[in-house]
Simulated assay, not measured.
Amino acid sequence: MGGDVADPCVRSVGARGSFDPSSIAPLAEALDRAAAEHSKVVLDASGITFADSSLLNPLIPTHRTVDLRVAAPTRQLCRLLEITGVDALLTVRSTVEEAAACWAPRSAWPSSPYSGAGRCSPSARLSAPPFRPVASGYRPVRPGR
């Protein structure tokens, strides 16, 4: 449940399957291990098929400990992040590579079909085919606040 990206300071943690109170422990342990060894962690969320609010339990403390990025979330996960307001807290990107590169200067970021500021932005959700990564950019606050 993890791997390294090109940057040796960044640890990628892959999440696969569904996450609820009975299944969150392995992911929480993987994030804890990654945070103990690296200051920058990317959660590859492309394999998450279902997640309830119990997924937020390891994400928020990990975010407080290290610089956490969420990569390639599904529509359902984007919705969970939006409903709970966690999308304003976490940095969300469309790919693992983009999430890892976003620590680099903006000129080094890979090009993405999901341009502009935002997390799980509505325009990206509407234009993307079902079950494709839909998040991009970074928005530190919600619109209208």
Rank of each mutant, 00 (worst) to 15 (best):
I60C: 01
L80N: 14
S39I: 02
R119Y: 06
A71P: 01
R11M: 10
G2R: 01
L90Y: 08
S53Y: 00
Y114T: 02
R11W: 06
A30D: 11
A117Y: 07
S136C: 13
R142D: 13
V92L: 15
L31S: 07
A104G: 12
I48M: 07
R64V: 00
S53T: 11
I60M: 05
C9Q: 14
C78W: 05
P140F: 03
R33E: 14
R11T: 04
S46C: 08
A45T: 08
S112K: 05
L27S: 10
T65L: 05
R16P: 03
G47N: 03
W103Y: 15
D7C: 01
P58N: 00
P133F: 00
A104P: 01
L43A: 06
S22Y: 03
A34P: 04
T95D: 08
G14V: 13
P21V: 07
I60Y: 00
V134N: 06
I83K: 14
E82W: 09
R106S: 15
E37T: 10
C120F: 01
W103K: 02
A124G: 06
D32I: 00
E37I: 00
A124N: 13
R69V: 05
R145T: 15
T95S: 15
D20E: 11
R79P: 05
P130M: 02
P143L: 07
A51P: 04
G137L: 04
S121N: 12
P73D: 11
L68W: 03
L43R: 12
R79D: 14
R33K: 13
R16Y: 08
S121G: 05
L59H: 04
A25F: 00
Q76G: 13
G116E: 07
R64N: 12
K40T: 14
T62Q: 00
T95E: 01
S12A: 15
G85H: 10
T49R: 11
P110D: 02
V96G: 07
L90E: 06
V92Q: 05
S121R: 13
D87M: 09
F19L: 09
C78V: 09
Y138L: 08
R106C: 06
Y138M: 02
E82M: 12
A117F: 10
S39A: 14
F50M: 07
E29L: 02
C120Y: 03
E37S: 11
L27V: 04
R79K: 14
A135E: 08
A135D: 04
S18L: 07
R75V: 10
S123V: 14
G137E: 05
G137I: 06
F19N: 05
P73K: 09
A104H: 14
R125W: 09
S22T: 13
G2H: 04
A15S: 11
D7G: 03
L81C: 14
C78T: 11
A104V: 03
T91F: 03
R75E: 13
R139C: 08
L31R: 06
A28H: 13
V96Q: 08
A30R: 03
A6W: 04
K40A: 13
L68H: 05
P130G: 05
F19G: 11
A135H: 08
S23T: 15
T65I: 09
V13N: 06
F131E: 14
L77H: 11
V86M: 14
K40S: 13
Y114H: 15
S107M: 11
S94T: 09
T62I: 00
R11E: 07
N57V: 00
A124R: 04
R132H: 09
S111A: 10
S18K: 09
V134F: 02
T74I: 02
C120V: 02
S136F: 07
S123T: 12
Q76W: 04
